[in-house]
Design a protein around this nucleic acid. Sequence first.
DNA 1: TTTCTTGCAAACGATTTGCACTTTG
DNA 2: CAAAGTGCAAATCGTTTGCAAGAAA
Lengths: 148, 148
Amino acid sequence: MQTQPSEIQYLRQQLTEFLRVRHLRKTPERFAILDKAVELSAHFGVDQLYNAMETEGYHVSRATVYNTLELLCEAGILNRHLFATNQARYEVARGSHLHLICRRCGKIREVDDPTLTERLLSETYDGFRPEYSSSIVYGLCDSCSSPL
Amino acid sequence: MQTQPSEIQYLRQQLTEFLRVRHLRKTPERFAILDKAVELSAHFGVDQLYNAMETEGYHVSRATVYNTLELLCEAGILNRHLFATNQARYEVARGSHLHLICRRCGKIREVDDPTLTERLLSETYDGFRPEYSSSIVYGLCDSCSSPL
DNA sequence: TTTCTTGCAAACGATTTGCACTTTG
DNA sequence: CAAAGTGCAAATCGTTTGCAAGAAA
């Protein structure tokens, strides 16, 4: 899950293409946000990305972050998930894993499972066109299940 | 998925037992909310349940609804899901289906898939104890995929 | 120059919290 | 009667929206 130098290139290309087709503008903010999203890699929240950019001295408004993340989802570059918390999380759309969420402490653990995703997306749900999936198994994590 | 007369009996029994073990109190509100939750059956939101009870002339505060729904989740009677919207949805913990969510109109369709749940929960995730699962396939529904 | 984008701040809406009052055990 | 639970209203917090100013095309 390491970010290869070529991946970001590819994703930028994908964004460029998407913007071209939709007649949207190539703004520096959009690419800066894409870069940071790829750098954060694992599920990140809006504020996490916002703060990371702020720390780095690159200022964008929260509104722009929200807008751009939605745009990147539209472009199929990111996936949006809503887990236990009431805060949207995003991830670069390359994973085929499921999420184990502890219902007590909220910790999220990823488990790779390529065949699960494949199974979910290859199905024909008559009329419905699958794009990506999100599977969550809720339960108690290691630490939370030991003590009562 | 019809509510049989015996199911509510069984669920009340389950709640009673849970309250007994945890030394919590058997309040009328808790049972009234359980009843209504079972009646609503499919995924319902907090306000939906609140309004249904209000209409019926049974008043409980929103805070109590929130508290009780969480309690019922703790008891394993309900499951809590966060789908596309930023509003929690609950359902009686008996389903083994996955959810197809249209990323454009947000419509949620249920598809039965008992083996999927079984597969997700029977796995041993070393240390993590699975309790229930939620699988979502995002995509475009019938109506939203036809027009550009 | 014409729109599309951005930034800012105010608005929103679901959920949580604090506290006085009530009820269960 | 002591502790737990309820109702109400205010507070939180993530997200959305309106609008003026700035930048792509």
